[in-house]
């Protein structure tokens, strides 16, 4: 069942890649990228539970906090034009 969840989240990532490719402005692509990072964190967590590897859990925490950091960096760049 865990594996089904991982594959479903990856399918959602594939759907979001459409918006990443087609988005007319940069903001659309940031939204798609942020949601992609969240889904990848979920997929990582469920893959760790599926394969029974506790080392993989830290990567999920890194991804969940770094999607926030990436969104903040991108929005600051979008707002001021310079980091």
């Amino acid at each position: 069942m865990y594996l089904a969840v991982v594959i479903a989240e990856l399918a959602l990532v594939a759907i979001l890649l459409v918006r990443l490719g087609r988005g007319p402005t940069v903001s659309d692509r940031i939204v798609a990228l942020n949601t992609m990072a969240t889904q990848t964190a979920l997929a990582t967590l469920f893959f760790a539970a599926y394969a029974d590897r506790t080392v993989d859990l830290d990567v999920a925490i890194w991804l969940a906090s770094f999607s926030y950091l990436g969104a903040i960096i991108w929005s600051r760049y979008l707002e001021r034009g310079l980091l």
């Binding site: 988005g23 990228l33 990567v59």
Partner: peptide, 20 residues
């Protein structure tokens, strides 16, 4: 900017592949 974002997507999915 869009190409940079796609590069970030490559890195994210590549990390999941490394886990697998």
């Amino acid at each position: 900017n869009a190409a940079v974002m796609a590069l970030s997507g490559v890195g994210t999915v590549l990390s999941l592949t490394f886990l697998v």
